[in-house]
């Protein structure tokens, strides 16, 4: 036995420099990552870098700018319209997220029960999400139209009102109207994602809880909610990011008006940068969104960090 193993000699392979290079781990890692790094650099890092650089120049459309340091930001911080946009971005994101998750979770719980026409209902619920955002926006623009609003028409026909409803002509009604449109559009994503999460919870857990003497509320509180939390955190992070950076709905329905009261940071940045031509200023506003987005990502990082009960190893 031992004589046969020690008698075996590894055949000598001719090793030229290429083989040795490809056998060298750091080089191999570099080669394998190259395509991904290339794509990221061209489509993510370059635009981001350009945007940040523009924010420190006085570039306008048609004239390449000079480095002006923090001037754009100084101007921005003294601009009440900017602060108004910050306020509305946070308010819009906060209220819309609460609305979307409240209604979305409720819908998901309903759909997780045995209902007649369940698959049809699910398909219907997905509709608002399948429709392109701009179409949604145009539809809402008509719904909120001061003269032709279908809601106003119905209320008047029913005799509940004498005049048309003011949806988007004054600041607060306009804000609430936009939030309502965003919630309507965002519910399907939340509901379907949470429904997928609900369906991974084993029915026998509910049966066990039933035998343990739980009420319906206790089953939600102690079984459904904690087990849904990981997926809830992911979906919420995405939803917050998408809502905070929303552009299409607001731009198509109110263009930031009346009197700049419904500008989000994204619409304001566009407004300043493209129609008004102040690329540097627009870029500075866009860059100011980064801290908020970093915060949302950190939130996801910590909230999503695998919980102890999901880990396989014992680490107590």
């Amino acid at each position: 036995m031992s004589s046969t193993t020690t008698g075996w000699v590894r055949p000598k392979i001719e090793q030229n420099w290429l083989i040795r290079l490809l056998d060298w781990k750091p080089f191999l890692i570099f080669i394998c990552l190259l395509p991904a790094i290339g794509l990221l650099a061209v489509f993510l890092t370059y635009p981001l870098g350009l945007g940040i650089w523009l924010a420190f120049t006085d570039t306008t459309i048609g004239r390449s700018g000079r480095w002006v340091g923090l001037e754009n930001f100084e101007f921005m911080f003294e601009d009440p319209i900017f602060w108004n946009a910050v306020f509305f971005s946070v308010f819009y994101t906060g209220v819309a997220t609460i609305g979307k998750f409240g209604l979305g979770l409720w819908l998901a719980l309903l759909l997780n029960n045995h209902l007649p026409f369940k698959s049809l209902l699910r398909a219907i619920i997905l509709l608002p999400w399948i429709v392109p955002t701009v179409l949604t926006a145009v539809a809402f623009w008509w719904i909120y139209n001061p003269q032709f609003s279908v809601i106003s028409w119905m209320l008047i026909e029913l005799g509940l009102r004498d005049t048309n409803v003011d949806f988007i002509n004054t600041a607060w009604p306009a804000r609430w109207s936009l939030i309502a449109a965003n919630i309507w559009r965002g519910i399907p994503f939340v509901a379907i994602s949470l429904l997928a999460g609900l369906q991974t919870i084993s029915p026998s857990l509910y049966e066990a809880a039933l035998l343990d003497g739980s009420t319906a509320w206790q089953r939600f509180r102690y079984i459904t909610f904690p087990m849904l939390l990981p997926i809830l955190a992911i979906v919420m992070t995405f939803s917050i990011i998408f809502t905070f950076t929303d552009f299409q709905l607001v731009y198509a329905i109110t263009r930031g008006g009346p009197v700049n009261s419904t500008h989000l940071l994204a619409t304001l940045a566009f407004q300043r940068g493209i129609p008004a031509g102040q690329l540097g200023e627009g870029a500075a506003i866009a860059v100011s969104m980064i801290p908020f987005l970093v915060f949302a990502t950190l939130f996801s990082y910590f909230a999503l960090a695998r919980r102890k009960w999901q880990q396989g190893e014992s680490n107590d």
């Binding site: 084993s202 857990l205 066990a208 809880a209 102690y222 079984i223």
Partner: peptide, 12 residues
Amino acid sequence: AMVFQNYALYPH
């Protein structure tokens, strides 16, 4: 009280 085939322990 019931003991299930898959135990149905609450994982969290």
